[in-house]
Amino acid sequence: MIEQLLSHYNYWVVIILMMVGFYIVVAQGNLVKKVVGLNIFQTSVFIFYISVGKVEGGTAPILVEGVDVYSNPLPHVLILTAIVVGIATTALALALVIRIKEAYGSVEESELQIRDQQC
């Protein structure tokens, strides 16, 4: 049991990070903190993909003489794309938060709801 936990520790890290991130997105009322939560959530998926690519005993996927076991480079390449998407999402989210702050004068969810009801 313990051994299984330890040998797959990277996946446990993924699950913990994913839940932490998801919880922040749902529970936090501050818009910037929500974006941070979203980032943690996405990062856990990146780590998951990178873990999948690891081949036991394999090295970096560069052709060298005397090595014939390589880690799988494809998940790494995929996740490069996903990281770019993640950055674009974060940038857009933060840009929206700035404009929300300008328009409402607050970045707290509860405040925004009160101000929308007033008008």
Binding site: F22, V25, L31, L38, A93, L96, V97, A103, Y104, D116
Partner: peptide, 17 residues
């Protein structure tokens, strides 16, 4: 409308999830 920003933000969070 300024609520468009708020709507876009909410959609962004849920869409990204």
């Amino acid at each position: 409308d300024r609520r468009a920003l708020w709507a876009a933000y909410q959609y962004l969070i849920m869409g990204t999830i």
